[in-house]
Deep mutational scan, measured.
Amino acid sequence: NQESVVAAVLIPINTALTVGMMTTRVVSPTGAPAEDIPRLISMQVNQVVPMGTTLMPDMVKGYAP
């Protein structure tokens, strides 16, 4: 099972992602793949992402898996 990126903390809208904001988990439906964490760092979210929420590609500005 592939791990997806999950918010480790509450991420406010327009916040640039840091490694400490993200964790990985096997979830369904799958979100952004765990191996993309290095690409996701410094990208901004376009909505509030509550802690424990799977990071879906459409939540991150300019990100395409």
Rank of each mutant, 00 (worst) to 15 (best):
60 V>R: 01
62 G>P: 05
64 A>N: 13
49 V>G: 01
62 G>S: 04
45 V>N: 02
45 V>L: 07
42 S>P: 03
59 M>S: 04
48 V>H: 11
12 P>L: 09
30 T>P: 15
34 A>T: 05
27 V>C: 08
42 S>M: 10
51 M>W: 06
49 V>E: 00
17 L>Y: 07
5 V>K: 00
56 M>D: 01
59 M>A: 03
12 P>S: 09
21 M>D: 07
44 Q>S: 10
54 T>I: 06
55 L>K: 03
24 T>H: 10
13 I>K: 15
1 N>W: 12
11 I>C: 06
36 D>G: 04
65 P>K: 09
16 A>M: 12
50 P>I: 09
29 P>V: 01
18 T>L: 09
63 Y>W: 06
47 Q>N: 00
24 T>I: 10
21 M>T: 01
8 A>S: 10
23 T>F: 09
13 I>H: 05
33 P>I: 06
42 S>D: 12
11 I>Q: 02
59 M>H: 00
63 Y>L: 02
26 V>F: 13
50 P>K: 10
56 M>F: 08
43 M>D: 03
29 P>C: 08
64 A>Q: 15
31 G>F: 02
61 K>D: 13
60 V>S: 03
57 P>V: 09
13 I>P: 10
2 Q>K: 12
29 P>L: 06
32 A>P: 02
38 P>K: 09
1 N>G: 15
55 L>I: 14
35 E>Y: 15
47 Q>I: 09
60 V>A: 01
20 G>W: 15
34 A>P: 10
49 V>T: 04
57 P>C: 09
17 L>V: 05
53 T>W: 14
5 V>L: 00
25 R>Y: 07
32 A>Y: 14
24 T>V: 11
7 A>V: 08
35 E>T: 13
12 P>Y: 09
10 L>Y: 14
49 V>Y: 03
22 M>K: 06
60 V>E: 05
13 I>L: 11
56 M>H: 07
41 I>F: 01
43 M>E: 02
19 V>G: 09
39 R>M: 11
33 P>V: 06
27 V>W: 09
61 K>E: 12
8 A>T: 11
20 G>F: 13
55 L>Y: 05
36 D>R: 02
16 A>E: 11
60 V>I: 14
36 D>Q: 02
32 A>F: 15
42 S>Q: 08
64 A>L: 14
44 Q>V: 15
34 A>Y: 04
45 V>S: 03
49 V>L: 03
4 S>P: 03
3 E>R: 13
21 M>R: 02
38 P>A: 10
34 A>Q: 03
23 T>D: 09
41 I>L: 11
7 A>N: 00
20 G>N: 13
44 Q>A: 07
35 E>W: 15
59 M>V: 01
43 M>S: 02
55 L>W: 05
45 V>I: 05
18 T>D: 07
2 Q>S: 12
37 I>A: 03
43 M>L: 14
16 A>D: 05
56 M>G: 00
46 N>D: 02
48 V>W: 12
51 M>T: 05
16 A>C: 12
24 T>G: 08
42 S>Y: 08
51 M>R: 14
8 A>P: 00
9 V>L: 07
23 T>W: 10
7 A>H: 00
38 P>V: 10
4 S>G: 05
4 S>C: 08
23 T>L: 12
9 V>M: 12
2 Q>E: 11
39 R>K: 12
5 V>H: 04
41 I>A: 02
8 A>Y: 08
37 I>M: 11
26 V>G: 04
23 T>M: 14
54 T>F: 06
14 N>V: 07
14 N>F: 11
26 V>E: 07
42 S>L: 08
44 Q>R: 15
9 V>Y: 06
19 V>S: 12
50 P>F: 10
35 E>C: 14
62 G>R: 02
36 D>P: 03
32 A>C: 15
5 V>D: 01
30 T>G: 11
25 R>P: 07
54 T>Q: 02
12 P>V: 09
28 S>F: 15
2 Q>D: 11
3 E>N: 07
57 P>S: 06
55 L>P: 04
4 S>T: 05
13 I>M: 13
63 Y>T: 01
7 A>S: 05
29 P>T: 04
13 I>Q: 12
13 I>W: 07
1 N>C: 14
21 M>L: 03
16 A>T: 11
44 Q>P: 03
63 Y>S: 04
43 M>C: 14
61 K>M: 12
26 V>N: 11
11 I>A: 00
42 S>W: 09
40 L>F: 02
31 G>P: 02
10 L>R: 12
4 S>Q: 01
63 Y>R: 02
22 M>H: 06
10 L>H: 15
43 M>V: 05
61 K>A: 11
4 S>E: 04
33 P>Y: 06
29 P>Y: 07
2 Q>N: 13
62 G>L: 05
19 V>L: 15
44 Q>Y: 14
15 T>L: 06
57 P>A: 10
20 G>C: 14
53 T>V: 11
39 R>F: 11
46 N>G: 02
40 L>I: 05
21 M>N: 07
31 G>V: 02
52 G>D: 02
22 M>G: 07
44 Q>D: 00
39 R>S: 06
61 K>T: 13
60 V>Y: 05
22 M>Y: 04
65 P>N: 10
3 E>H: 12
15 T>C: 09
38 P>E: 10
4 S>V: 07
50 P>A: 10
47 Q>E: 05
42 S>H: 12
57 P>H: 06
61 K>S: 11
39 R>C: 11
46 N>W: 09
56 M>E: 03
37 I>Y: 00
53 T>H: 13
8 A>E: 03
62 G>N: 12
65 P>G: 11
64 A>Y: 14
8 A>K: 12
4 S>R: 05
47 Q>W: 09
36 D>Y: 03
10 L>S: 10
59 M>Q: 02
51 M>G: 00
46 N>V: 10
47 Q>P: 03
1 N>R: 11
47 Q>A: 07
56 M>L: 10
9 V>G: 01
63 Y>M: 04
10 L>P: 02
3 E>V: 11
2 Q>I: 14
16 A>V: 13
42 S>E: 01
31 G>C: 02
52 G>K: 04
32 A>G: 00
53 T>L: 06
34 A>K: 10
36 D>H: 05
58 D>T: 12
17 L>F: 06
58 D>V: 07
41 I>K: 04
56 M>P: 02
9 V>P: 04
30 T>E: 12
27 V>I: 05
49 V>F: 06
39 R>V: 11
5 V>N: 01
47 Q>D: 02
64 A>K: 15
8 A>M: 08
41 I>Y: 02
45 V>C: 06
44 Q>T: 13
62 G>Y: 06
25 R>H: 07
21 M>K: 01
11 I>T: 04
29 P>M: 08
58 D>E: 14
48 V>R: 13
27 V>P: 04
23 T>N: 08
59 M>Y: 04
15 T>Q: 03
7 A>K: 01
49 V>Q: 00
17 L>C: 07
58 D>F: 15
34 A>G: 09
5 V>P: 00
29 P>A: 00
62 G>M: 05
33 P>E: 04
34 A>N: 04
43 M>K: 14
50 P>E: 11
61 K>R: 15
51 M>F: 06
36 D>S: 05
7 A>F: 08
11 I>G: 00
19 V>C: 13
12 P>I: 09
54 T>L: 05
3 E>G: 11
34 A>L: 04
49 V>M: 02
26 V>C: 13
56 M>C: 07
34 A>V: 07
25 R>K: 12
5 V>E: 01
23 T>Y: 11
26 V>L: 14
33 P>R: 07
58 D>C: 15
9 V>A: 02
11 I>W: 03
33 P>S: 05
28 S>K: 12
22 M>A: 07
24 T>R: 15
59 M>R: 00
34 A>S: 07
61 K>W: 12
31 G>S: 05
52 G>N: 08
37 I>K: 00
30 T>Q: 15
54 T>N: 02
39 R>I: 12
12 P>Q: 10
22 M>V: 08
39 R>G: 02
64 A>C: 15
35 E>L: 12
50 P>D: 08
48 V>S: 14
17 L>K: 02
15 T>R: 05
13 I>E: 13
54 T>S: 00
31 G>A: 04
33 P>H: 05
7 A>D: 03
9 V>K: 07
11 I>P: 03
13 I>F: 11
8 A>W: 08
27 V>F: 03
37 I>F: 04
24 T>K: 13
36 D>I: 05
60 V>G: 00
18 T>I: 08
12 P>K: 10
48 V>Q: 13
65 P>E: 10
26 V>R: 13
46 N>P: 02
30 T>V: 15
43 M>F: 06
22 M>W: 05
51 M>H: 02
42 S>C: 11
3 E>M: 13
13 I>N: 12
50 P>H: 11
36 D>A: 05
50 P>N: 08
2 Q>P: 12
58 D>I: 08
12 P>C: 09
55 L>M: 05
1 N>K: 12
64 A>F: 14
17 L>A: 02
37 I>S: 01
34 A>E: 02
43 M>R: 11
27 V>E: 06
42 S>V: 07
2 Q>A: 12
49 V>P: 01
27 V>T: 11
37 I>D: 03
32 A>W: 13
28 S>Q: 13
54 T>H: 01
46 N>I: 10
25 R>N: 08
21 M>P: 06
12 P>G: 09
16 A>I: 14
19 V>K: 13
59 M>I: 02
36 D>W: 08
12 P>M: 09
